[in-house]
Write a protein that binds this DNA or RNA. Structure first.
Lengths: 201, 201
DNA sequence: ACGCTTCGCTACGGTGGCGTAGCGAAAAGG
DNA sequence: CCTTTTCGCTACGCCACCGTAGCGAAGCGT
């Protein structure tokens, strides 16, 4: 059920592969992503992917040993960091960065794959490792920006960056995954203002 | 695949049912929960539940039309609100309430079922409706306590309660579901202090 | 002790997905 | 143009799970 627990090496660094391989490969991954989005985990099978993508079942088995490895590649294909620029204005930068995260959470690959990734991370070490690398990459720019802000004196000195990141990003995921509500821009604004200014009277 | 989309009526309000029915019923639900926790969604099937619970397959089919309805009942059986008392000290009450939420997220039914619930909510309206009712029940005490605090003047007047709740609860879910890290008590303390006091210099 | 209900068991046909083998067609590369 | 690789297709055996039928045994309420 779970992939080989050794190492996650789902990226062969693209050697001199045949262009035909590339085509079928992306067709398969696209179809898998679509199945995952439309019918959830239970809807993904080699046969269904074959039927939807038009790629023969045998061809799929030539590139992936089983369904889990295919799913791993689907998740790998959805990476990309959320840029957080430094304009000098912390509030502005945070709002811009979090708005981008919010839009990724409500549309795009991350929106449709995240729930499945979370579920997969619970049971398989390989998925968990991939997921953690994925999240870490996403978090890096925000963490860097916050560190600069602390060093610059825009934030309180003793502040724990990890806590701060959780307070900024967590509410967006909470709203997306638990409440199933959209994330309006005003929500991000309120969030940043609340975190920066505090809630107490 | 999805249950009847009509109404979620998975609670017959326990009429005069046979004690035997109760026994097999709870055995089945326990086994299903265990399978869901240990092997994820894919590990749940009527046959597996039957084998693990010791309840005959035919008996299961006599009480549930399919696997989805069984899963619905598993989720229903895991409810319960998080109490947030009012001692007059807002900071103390928030820390106490959030610590309890944190412990529920890292151990107990909610910890093992939440990821599956999230995934299920993405594809099935019935699961989504159930999940939303579940979350709403969990949120009520915290919301009430925050409203009292606003009215009492412990919090800024114009504060949006929804935003504030997301800022308080979101980071815990974020840490649990995305980072897969434990939630130490100090994290909850930092969180509450950060939200109440603000991050800015 | 009596009926009635529920249970466990076995057996069954049907379905869908798995993973492999073999082959001719097509396309890339030199 | 010719070799090599990949592809698509068919066919296959296998297995897990589905959902139902029938029946005797066991447990409940009275």
């Amino acid at each position: 059920m779970a992939p080989k627990s050794t190492v996650v090496t789902t990226e062969p660094k693209d050697g001199p592969t045949d262009p035909r391989m590339q085509r079928s490969r992306s067709a398969v991954i696209d179809a898998t992503r679509q199945l995952l989005r439309d019918h959830g985990f239970a809807g993904v099978s080699i046969e269904a992917v074959s039927a939807l993508s038009g790629v023969a079942k045998t061809t799929i088995y030539r590139q992936w040993p089983d369904c889990d490895h295919l799913l791993l590649d689907v998740f790998v294909s959805a990476k990309g960091a959320v840029p957080v620029h430094d304009t000098g204005d912390l509030r502005h930068d945070l709002i811009a960065g979090l708005r981008m995260l919010a839009s990724e959470l409500t549309s795009g690959d991350m929106a449709s794959l995240l729930p499945a990734m979370i579920e997969a991370s619970e049971r398989s070490p390989a998925f968990r490792a991939l997921n953690e690398a994925f999240i870490a990459a996403k978090r890096a720019p925000l963490r860097d920006r916050l560190r600069v802000a602390v060093k610059r004196g825009d934030l309180r000195p003793g502040l724990d960056i990890e806590t701060l990141m959780a307070v900024l990003a967590g509410p967006l995921f909470y709203r997306r995954l638990l409440l199933h509500q959209p994330i309006p821009k005003a929500f991000v604004d309120d969030l940043v203002d609340l975190v920066l200014g505090g809630a107490a009277q």
